[in-house]
Write a protein that binds this DNA or RNA. Sequence first.
DNA 1: GCCAACGTTGGC
DNA 2: GCCAACGTTGGC
Length: 141
Amino acid sequence: MENSCHWLLKTEPSTYSIQQLKTDKKTGWNGVRNFQARNFLQKAKPGDIALIYHSGDERAVVGVAKITRGAYPDPDPKKPGDWVQIEIQFHSLFLKPVLLKEIKECAGLKDLLLLKQSRLSVMPVSAQNFKTLCKMGGMDK
DNA sequence: GCCAACGTTGGC
DNA sequence: GCCAACGTTGGC
């Protein structure tokens, strides 16, 4: 796993939740219409791991998914461009969601992009921060 | 190319 | 419901 990267994928649970992903087993992570987020999506590759974050009322990292397919086209007639999606597979639910509040209070997570660019929906997470978040979520095994 | 107006996201 | 932070659009 030395070469795998870590990501954080944001979703509004009323639109698509991790519970839905658990039911679906896997899904095409599509609908990203932001250049910066898309550029990160293009770098995701099979084997990479993604944290799933629920925005809105929940505001917490809720679980983990595995990327099973790298970027492929996500055409949008309303907004032409080279949009891409990836395929992810459900991996696990955190035993305890890690609230945004806790993330903000954790000194070790100060550099998490989530805190710096609140509107970014796809972002890289350092291996260190990934570890910290998993631990906070009760997944330290 | 600049910038004001407007739209969207997401946190509070 | 409001606001901050961006992103987008359109006039000039």
